[in-house]
């Protein structure tokens, strides 16, 4: 009980004093995870729509794989990306290991299946509903995709936020490919792991609460923005 209240007090202190180290770490957390969400959405939304609308050989396999990969352990993603970006790996010459870019790549891979899979589910339902109309209007594949993505925007927002939640909260992948380097690749989750291993449980818990607040703020801001620009329902 005492440990928990210490954690809350620590979180309060960190936020109220705008601790510079915290601002840097939280900023990098946001930057990495939002970049990963942007990249994964850019690929995952059209991919999910494509799988719903077009039938092609291997589609069933892709659907099953995407669903299965929704539960990818972050550590495994981190390991795979590490092996890719390692100096001895295929992309080693780029020198990306232990940089924020590597962390963004790992989180993108981690959440792409979530965003693509959830997109596919909502777009499939909508496509069943719209199919005859859009065919009779001779809509092109690009027009069909755009229409479905726009009209499914509310459920897609949920998909994107689910991806963000997983990205900002994971520690396994960014620890391996980022290295938790102070002032360079340390994010909230790796800082929490570090403070826990030092036995600074109150600080670790405080950072965890900051992470929670950050996730809440991003979700609330997105919903507020969405209801302003997309109209109420």
């Amino acid at each position: 009980m005492n440990g928990l209240s210490d954690g809350f007090r620590e979180a309060f202190r960190l936020v109220v004093t705008l601790d510079p180290a915290l601002v840097e770490i939280a900023g990098l957390s946001l930057f990495v995870s939002l970049s990963a969400v942007a990249a994964a959405s850019l690929i995952g939304l059209p991919l999910g729509a494509l799988i719903s609308v077009r039938s092609f050989p291997g589609r069933g396999v892709i659907v099953v794989l995407l669903n299965a990969f929704m539960g990818l352990p972050p550590v495994v993603v981190g390991l795979v990306v590490y092996l890719m970006l390692s100096r001895s790996g295929p992309f080693g010459v780029l020198g990306l290991l232990f940089t924020p870019t590597a962390m963004i790549i790992a989180q993108t891979i981690l959440i792409l299946p979530i965003i693509a899979s959830l997109t596919r589910q909502s777009i499939s339902d909508l496509w069943d509903h719209y199919r005859e109309l859009l065919q009779s209007l001779d809509a092109t594949p690009a027009q069909i995709t755009a229409t479905l993505l726009w009209d499914a925007r509310r459920s897609l927002l949920t998909a994107v936020l689910a991806g963000f939640g997983r990205a900002i909260a994971e520690v396994g992948a960014v620890m391996i490919v980022g290295g938790n380097i102070e002032h360079a690749t340390r994010v909230l989750t790796t800082a929490i792991a570090l403070e826990t291993s030092k036995g600074n449980l109150a600080l670790a818990l405080g950072l965890g609460l900051v992470l929670l607040i950050l996730a809440l703020v991003v979700n609330a801001a997105t919903h507020a923005l969405a209801s302003r620009t997309m109209g109420r329902r």
């Binding site: 990306l96 940089t99 963004i104 360079a184």
Partner: peptide, 10 residues
Amino acid sequence: RGVLVATVGL
């Protein structure tokens, strides 16, 4: 700030 960090990293 994050972009800066990323650029330095690269």
